[in-house]
Design a binder for these strands. Structure first.
Lengths: 330, 330
DNA sequence: GCTTGACATGCAACCGGTTGCATGGAATTC
DNA sequence: GAATTCCATGCAACCGGTTGCATGTCAAGC
């Protein structure tokens, strides 16, 4: 049982330095208001006592705690770590800290987290939110909010537009001679999923390609593997998967079913997070998650500085990265 | 420019309900102290005004903000996401929130983060800390701290003991006929790295195996790939890598050098985070990261409840998971 | 019928800072 | 030498809750 010493306050420093509390406060926040020698005396006393400003107390009176929240559906999904890192880096540049929340793809948990964060952050970034538009609007009325991959008018948002990349993917498959392809879909309430599905459909028709939708329960390796039989039973000769993780699972499932990629079947992922690390190396639609994280945070910080909400809509385009899982149909 | 309404306080609710501020406070924190009808009246008023308790203010007077910090060296390393999720789940069970920090393997950044978090969390979990023992002790004197994979006496810690698994790995290689193996090391200031290196050395001698240490700059795919030439030049017929990510890079590098695994070379990873998703499927030493995250948080919460620091040392053992990257030497 | 006690509520101090305004001494001006 | 200005510092209120203690009310006990 070791007791903790903690709790050196501004008052103790003030006593030690022989000044008023306000002077100690100013020594830390606006030293140019004080005589240099006074500042030095105060700093010396603070040092000696081991004083550390109390963030909570400061936040209470100023209303600014210097934190922003970032909520993602699944940290373990390789799409997010780079986004998170970029967000953190950008926040760091303005001396902000990031509160990270993980919802496990559950809207209920997401709602709870937002409420919990609301009191302790100045603003929030919701990445790939699974909440209803109504709930998002409700939260946006409470505190500054920036969305990633959710397109809700009136709320600042950063969108990774898979359209160009997906269209390239379909054209690429068409050129290789594929006539029937499958789209392995992602979460039903995912904006990206809808966007990709629609882009594939609208690109397929003019290219003379037929599309079958095959639903994967979750964007995960396992889900991808489990859905392979369904894909093969459609008679498609190629597939585009909602994301790379799902595609990776499909790849494994195909191999288990003795279907050789790319000889017997072509496969394209989305997000390009696995890239060269699968075998064969996965052809994929690039993602812009690093930019998305950076831009979202930068947008949020701008809003905080301006004390106003903007209706910004920032679109990041994508393209196809061809590797080794696509080939001409026999 | 949309203005924000926020700021319904306890006083406004008190006025609306015709009671004192303290009664409003009690209605929310200890309703059993008040008449049920009073509570109801207050709640109704609060509801009508859209009152939400201010977390910061509460934290200031009670000293408890209900969050704990978790600091990791690299979110993008697949070792950590499961640990993070498990930690979050455990914290959630006690209505605690997790503040996540990412240091990018930099001790300086880690130090900064700890300082930054210190003011807003009740306790901290440091996973695979790259800080010096001295700095860790200094921080531990300031607030409750639990370590994962750092063995510092007097500070509660959860250790994933790779020893048993690594010894199994060496024996496994010995049985397959390997006589010279390489250890691809990880970060120099990593406790796990030291532990694994030592375990390999001490297991190798009695098994009649010679060990060469090959240093990888960072535990990353790229580092692993870059170090392949150095591995091959040692003349070893097998390697154990610091972690799976490094091993994955080594696997890619070997393939580029036309070295077939496991026919020409055997490879074993650590942490078992990639498992079946590499090709060939990676033989690896299991990790216990989920338990580590859960236990660390649970330990921390116990400390907070007990208002005391315990010198707990919790060791989680590992074992070898044999897959397809190891085979008999020619 | 008066004391006692239980209990619901209010009062006011406190958590640890920040900040607008007052103050007083030194420097500047006439 | 008196009036003015400037500026470093102190005072006190405030941020939004929590909590120990005081108060007032009402029912039970003698």
């Amino acid at each position: 049982m070791i007791k903790r010493a903690k709790g050196v306050t501004i008052s103790q420093v003030a006593d030690a330095a022989g000044v008023a509390r306000s002077s100690v406060s100013r020594a830390f926040t606006r030293p140019e208001m004080l005589l240099p020698e006074t500042v030095e005396r105060i700093m010396k006393a603070a040092e000696a006592l081991g004083y550390v400003p109390n963030h909570t107390a400061r936040a209470l009176s100023t209303g600014r705690h210097g934190n922003i929240g970032l909520i993602v559906p699944d940290i373990a999904n390789p799409f997010f770590p780079p986004l998170i890192q970029a967000a953190q880096l950008e926040a760091d540049r303005s001396e902000f800290c990031i509160f990270l929340g993980n919802t496990g793809e559950s809207p209920k948990q997401e709602d709870k987290l937002v409420g919990r964060f609301a009191g302790q952050v100045e603003g929030l970034v919701l990445a790939s939110s699974r909440l209803s538009e109504e709930r998002i609007r409700a939260h946006a009325a409470q505190l500054p909010l920036v969305l990633i991959n959710r397109d809700i008018e009136g709320i600042p948002r950063v969108l990774i537009d898979s359209g160009p990349g997906v269209r390239e993917a379909v054209d690429h498959l068409a050129r290789l001679g594929h006539r029937k392809i499958a789209y392995v879909s992602g979460p039903a309430n995912s904006w990206s999923n809808n966007q990709r599905r629609n882009a594939i459909r609208s690109a397929a028709a003019p290219a003379g390609i037929e599309v079958e939708i095959v639903a994967a329960a979750l964007p995960s390796y396992e889900s991808g593997r489990n859905v392979v039989k369904a894909i093969l039973s459609t008679g498609a000769t190629a597939a585009v998967a909602f994301d790379d993780v799902t595609a990776h699972g499909v790849l494994a499932g195909l191999s288990e079913n003795k279907v050789s990629v790319p000889r017997d079947f072509s496969l394209i992922g989305c997000d390009d997070v696995l890239g060269a690390v699968t075998y064969p190396a996965l052809t994929s639609v690039s993602n812009r998650s690093v930019e998305a994280g950076r831009v979202a945070v930068s947008l949020l910080l701008d809003m905080l500085r301006a004390h106003a909400m903007r209706d910004e809509r920032c679109v990041l385009e994508t393209n196809l990265v061809v590797r080794s899982t696509t080939a001409e149909v026999d």
